[in-house]
Amino acid sequence: MKFDKPIVKGVILKRYKRFLADIELSEDHGEHKKGEVITAHTANTGSMKTCWEPGWPVLISFNDSPTRKLKYSLEMTHNGKTWIGVNTAIPNKISVEAIADGTIKELQGYETIKPEAKIGKSRIDIYLYDGDKKAPTKQCYVEVKNVTMLQDERRAIFPDGVSERGQKHLKELISLKEQGIRACMLYIIQRRDVEIFAPAIEIDPEYARLLKEAHKAGVEILPYQCLIDENGVQVEKLLPYEL
C-alpha cells in the first residue's frame, strides 16, 4: 500500500489522551513552517510501548477534508533502526491486498474476499469463501491484529496492553473451529527489527492462554512482517512464532 495522501516529516514531542500527538514539523508544509508544532490524530488505542520516545522522527499524513478537525495523522515513527507503523487502520487494508495478490500464500484459493463479517454481536476482519455467501462451499474467517511492540530486541509481541476485545476474538475463532470452520489469526508486524512473534504473556496472560488454546483447537497463527518505508507499507514474509 502506497500512501495516497501527502506525507510530511516531523519529530514527535508527546502523545496524550490516546488519540493526540504533538509533532514538530521538520519541513515546511502549506501554511505550516518548519519548526512549527502541530497536533496530529493518532489512530491507535494501544499503549504504543516501544513505538515512540520524545524526539523520534515521524511521518504524518495530511488530509484537508472539511469534516476533519485535525488535518494531520500520525503514520510512522522511527527508533533509529526501523520505521514502525502505528496507524491501526492500515493492517486490514494491506492484509486484503496481500491475500488478493498472493503474498499470503496460506490464504489462497478462495473466490471472494470480504472485509469484515458479522459473527454474533461482533465482527471478524476478513471473510474468505467460495460459492454463495449464505451457503458457502468453502470458507475461512481471519482476524487481523497490528503488532508493533518490541521485546528483548528480537520479539514482536501482542498485545501492548490488556485486550479484552482481543480475548473475545480468540474465543470466537475457537468457536468457529469447533463448528468445523477454518479460522486464522493474522498478525501484521509493522517493524523490521524483529525475528519472531510471541504473545505478550506478562502484559495480558489471559490473551496468551487463549492463544495457546486457540492453537490447540486448530486456529492457524500467521505472523507476517511488513516492508515499511517512507513510501508506504506492504506485507512481505511469514515469521516464526512461539507460544
Rank of each mutant, 00 (worst) to 15 (best):
I7Y: 05
K9Q: 15
K17A: 13
F19C: 02
D22N: 11
E27F: 04
E27P: 00
H32M: 14
K33S: 09
G35H: 15
I38C: 01
H41Q: 11
T42Y: 01
G46R: 08
G46E: 10
M48A: 15
W52Q: 09
P54H: 14
V58E: 03
V58Q: 02
L59G: 01
L59D: 01
F62V: 14
N63R: 09
N63P: 12
D64A: 10
D64Q: 11
D64P: 06
S65I: 07
K71L: 04
L74H: 02
L74M: 10
E75L: 11
E75S: 02
W83E: 01
V86H: 00
N87A: 04
T88R: 12
N92D: 11
K93Q: 11
V96H: 03
E97P: 01
I99Y: 02
T103P: 00
Q108V: 05
G109V: 12
K114T: 10
I124R: 07
K138H: 14
V142K: 10
N146P: 06
V147E: 08
L150V: 11
L150I: 13
D152T: 07
D152G: 03
I157R: 14
F158A: 09
F158N: 07
S163L: 00
G166Q: 08
K168D: 10
S175Q: 15
L176P: 03
K177P: 03
Q179T: 09
G180Q: 07
C184E: 07
L186W: 07
L186K: 04
I188E: 00
I188F: 04
Q190A: 11
R192C: 09
R192E: 12
V194L: 11
E195G: 09
F197G: 05
D204I: 06
D204Y: 08
P205S: 09
A208G: 12
A208E: 04
R209L: 13
R209T: 15
R209P: 11
K212P: 11
H215T: 07
K216A: 13
G218F: 06
E220C: 03
L222A: 08
P223G: 05
L227N: 07
I228R: 02
E230T: 04
Q234P: 00
V235L: 09
V235S: 01
V235H: 04
L238Q: 02
L238A: 07
L239D: 12
E242P: 00
